[in-house]
Design a protein around this nucleic acid. Structure first.
Lengths: 200, 200
DNA sequence: CACATACGAAACAGGTCGTATCGTATTGTT
DNA sequence: AACAATACGATACGACCTGTTTCGTATGTG
C-alpha cells in the first residue's frame, strides 16, 4: 500500500487524446454510421486493441468524443435572471457549435448506443445548473414561485438544438435576449407538483 | 399511347405498405444502426430484392419510413395567431409522438443518410406552413411587421424536439399556450432583412 | 532480475450492405 | 396463345465492419 502507482506499463494518455481527436474529426466527416473503429486506428496509427481497451464499443467511444468536445462551465450567478439565462444559452450554443462541420458529431448523440451515457454525463448536469439559476431568481422575486423550470430551460435548449442540429443556422445572441425576455416576462407556470427530469 | 398502364407485372403496393410498417417497427425497436435490411425482409417474408428495388439504400428506406409515419395536415387559419400556432405545435407533437417506443425512429432522422430527404420532404414544408400563419397574423395586425418568423417557429419546434427526442417527456398543451403567449406578446424581431431557411 | 500491463499486428467469426444472377409469377400487348 | 416487360423470392457474392483473441514486443515498477 506504500504506492498508488499502478503496475505495468502505463496507459499512453497522449494516445488517448489523439484517439478522441481523430475520432471526432472522422465522426464530423462521416457521421456515426460511417465511422469505423478501424479507420480511426488507421488514422491514428495505432491498433484497434488500443481503442477497445479504452472504450467498450463504438458507442462508448463516440460518447467519449462528444463528451470531450463539450464543457460544463460554471453556473452563472450575476443576480439578474435574464443575464444568467443568456449565459446559460451561450454555453449551450458553444457546446453545440464547435465548428460547422461537426454537425454530424452533434447529431450522433442521438444514437441509441450513445445517448444514455451523455444524458448521465452531461444533459442531467446542465439541467441542474438551469434549475439553480431559476431557483435563485424565484428567491430574489424575479420569477413567481410556481414557474415551470423545465419548460423554460427546454425552450432555450430546444431552440439551440433545433437551430444547430436541424437547420444548421447560428443564433444571434440578440435573439436569445428576445426569447429570454418573453419567457421571463410571461413565465410558463407549473400545472401540478410533479417533478420531472426525463430519461427514465 | 392508348394506355397509361405500365408494362409488366405491377409493383405490389400492399407489399410496400408491409415493408414500411415492419421497418418502422424494427427501427423503433433497434434504432438505425441496429436495423438491417435483411431482418426487415425476413420479418416481412420477402426478398431483399423487393426492398432495394423500392429504395436505393438503407437511408432512403428509413427516410421513407419516417415520412410515412408523419403527416403534414392543413395549415391552420382560424383568424387568431395564438390558436393557429397552438395547432401548429399540436401537429408537431403528433408527428413526433406516434408511440412511446418509436423514439429511436424519430431520432433516426438525424442520420446523415436520412436527413436530407426529410428536410426536403417534410421540414421545409412545415416551415412554410408556419411562415404562412405568421404572415397572416402580420396582415391582421396581430404581430409587428418586423417579427422574426423563424425564431418563433424554431422555438416552438425546438421545444417539441427537445422534449420528445431528448427527454422523452410529453408536453401538456397548456404549456404550449404559455410559450406561444409569451412569443406573441413579446415577439422577437428581425435584425436584418436576410431570409433564412436552413439546410444549405 | 521478475512481474504486470500497454502496445501493434494479425487472424478470426459473425453480421451487414448492396449487387448480381437465377428461375418463376403476373401483367398488358399483339 | 404467344410475347415482352416487369416484380418477385432465393441465393451467392465481395467488400466492409465489429469485437475478440493471440502473439511478440515495449515500457513501466519492485
Amino acid at each position: 500500500m506504500a504506492s498508488d502507482e499502478k503496475l505495468g506499463r502505463p496507459t499512453d494518455e497522449d494516445l488517448t487524446r489523439r484517439i478522441l481527436e481523430t475520432a471526432g474529426r472522422l465522426l464530423g466527416e462521416y457521421g456515426y454510421a460511417g465511422l469505423s473503429v478501424e479507420k480511426v486506428a488507421k488514422a491514428v496509427g495505432c491498433g484497434k486493441t488500443a481503442i477497445y481497451r479504452r472504450y467498450a464499443d463504438k458507442g462508448a467511444l463516440v460518447a467519449a468524443v462528444v463528451r470531450s468536445q463539450v464543457e460544463l462551465g460554471a453556473t452563472p450567478d450575476s443576480g439578474d435572471v435574464r443575464a444568467d439565462l443568456l449565459e446559460h444559452a451561450r454555453q449551450n450554443q458553444r457546446n453545440q457549435e464547435l465548428s460547422p462541420e461537426r454537425v454530424h458529431g452533434m447529431r450522433a448523440m442521438f444514437e441509441p448506443d450513445v445517448f444514455p451515457a451523455l444524458w448521465e454525463g452531461f444533459f442531467k448536469h446542465r439541467r441542474e445548473q438551469g434549475i439553480e439559476i431559476i431557483d435563485r431568481a424565484i428567491a430574489r422575486g424575479e420569477l413567481p414561485a410556481d414557474v415551470h423550470h423545465d419548460i423554460i430551460l427546454d425552450t432555450i435548449a430546444g431552440l439551440t438544438l433545433y437551430r444547430q442540429s436541424v437547420k444548421r443556422i447560428h443564433i444571434d445572441e440578440r435573439h436569445y435576449v428576445d426569447i429570454i425576455d418573453a419567457l421571463v416576462t410571461r413565465p410558463p407556470r407549473r400545472l401540478d407538483g410533479a417533478d420531472e427530469t426525463g430519461q427514465p
